[in-house]
């Protein structure tokens, strides 16, 4: 499995600190270790391949979606939070 910050192939707009904070907060809300949340977010983006090839979540990954300011990592984190409610 690839570390979230080592994933390639996407345009990341947020800083690593912003990502860390967002993961920390989500982990707290979910009652999960931050490492696990980070692992899941990475897997949402790359399916174990090391490249952010999840077009459906990381629209910006293909650098096609100029209007999306969202960092694909934050988009994936949002999705994971929703997934935990389903």
């Amino acid at each position: 499995m690839t570390e979230l910050k080592d994933i390639e192939g996407a345009e990341f707009t947020a800083s690593d600190d912003e990502i860390d904070d967002a993961i920390e907060e989500a982990a707290d809300d979910l009652g999960m270790p931050p490492e696990k949340v980070e692992e899941e977010v990475a897997y949402i983006l790359d399916s174990g391949t090391g490249r952010a090839n999840n077009e459906g979540v990381a629209g910006a990954a293909a650098s096609d979606n100029e209007d999306t300011n969202n960092d694909p990592r934050l988009e994936a984190l949002e999705m994971y939070k929703l997934r935990q409610e389903l």
Binding site: S47, G48, T49, N53, N54, E55, G56, M79, L82, R83
Partner: peptide, 16 residues
């Protein structure tokens, strides 16, 4: 869009 996000995440594993 939400549905597509969940579906495409599942598809990522199928492709791998």
């Amino acid at each position: 869009n939400k549905g597509f996000q969940f579906i495409s995440t599942d598809e990522g594993r199928h492709i791998t």
